[in-house]
């Protein structure tokens, strides 16, 4: 028997808990953004190593589920993997070995490794700081950080209906399976998936009409309540200080690397 559609875990459920989950949401968004901007501009091995170690520490503190997180962090788009694999052969420099007549260079390997470390450190930090956040809290914190109100409304509606529509999609897939549909590489399969998507859109639009009707009936006049009272605790302050220390150490190591 397939798992009941209603008991499927939500796609955007917060992962982990703990020390990180209790911190101010605005602080976590800012911290993730600053970390990302600083990490992409690094080039030295020491600073990059520290970035990866820092991201790993926060991930451990956030108690992210180990196996699922590793899978998510390592999974990249197929084309990114190909792109990184091609770098040793396209960056000019000192050849290390030859493959089918093409020289693989040390500089190319280093560049691919650098991109890999940066991408993984930032993704790990984002999952630890933001993925552990309730999606609705994320939306409110974005509003507190002056993201336009309509965009925040859009985030809220999307977050609310992702799981509803995911379950709808699963129900339709079960119905298709019950009628003997098995996906293969064929026009029939692609057409059927097209009908599935079309049907999802039609149902979604009809659902949105009912939602809007229900909202109007409750006096909705174009605004959602997004205000929240934010208060900083001592733990938030120490978390912010630890973050500043990490980022400044990374910056200092980078300056030493560039100067030296």
């Amino acid at each position: 028997m397939t798992q009941s559609v209603e008991s499927v875990p939500g796609l955007l459920d917060a992962t982990g808990g703990s020390v990180v989950a209790g911190r101010d949401a605005r602080l976590r968004i800012l911290a993730a953004a600053v970390f990302a901007v600083v990490v992409v501009s690094l080039s030295g091995a020491a600073a990059l190593g520290l970035a990866l170690a820092g991201a790993f520490t926060v991930a451990v503190l956030a108690r992210l589920p180990v196996v699922r997180t590793l899978k998510r962090v390592i999974t990249m788009d197929g084309f990114i993997v190909v792109m990184l694999a091609m770098l040793p052969f396209t960056v000019p420099g000192e050849p290390v070995f030859h493959l089918l007549g093409f020289a693989a260079t040390r500089e190319g390997f280093l560049q691919a490794l650098t991109i890999g470390v940066k991408a993984n450190a930032i993704v790990l930090m984002a999952l630890a700081l933001l993925g552990s956040m309730e999606a609705v809290l994320l939306a409110r914190a974005l509003r507190a950080l002056l993201v336009p109100e309509r965009l925040v409304h859009l985030v809220l509606f999307t977050v609310r209906y992702v799981d509803v529509l995911d379950r709808e999609q699963r129900r339709l897939r079960i119905a298709m399976k019950a009628r003997g549909f098995r996906p293969k590489t064929s026009w029939h399969t692609y057409r059927t998936f097209g009908y599935l998507v079309g049907m999802l859109l039609v149902r979604a639009l009809e659902r949105s009409e009912r939602i809007f009707g229900a909202m109007k009936c409750r006096g909705f006049a174009g605004r959602l309540h997004l205000e929240a009272t934010w208060c900083w605790s001592a733990a938030d302050v120490s978390f912010a200080l630890a973050g500043i220390a990490l980022v400044s150490t990374m910056a200092a190591l980078e300056i030493l690397h560039v100067a030296g």
Binding site: R150, H153, L154, L156, F157, T158, V159, R160, Y161, V162, V164, L165, L200, L201, A204, L205, R207, S208, E209, I211, F212, M215
Partner: peptide, 10 residues
């Protein structure tokens, strides 16, 4: 916005 949000979720 509700329509856009639900379609974006789709």
């Amino acid at each position: 916005i509700p329509a856009a949000g639900v379609l974006s979720a789709t």
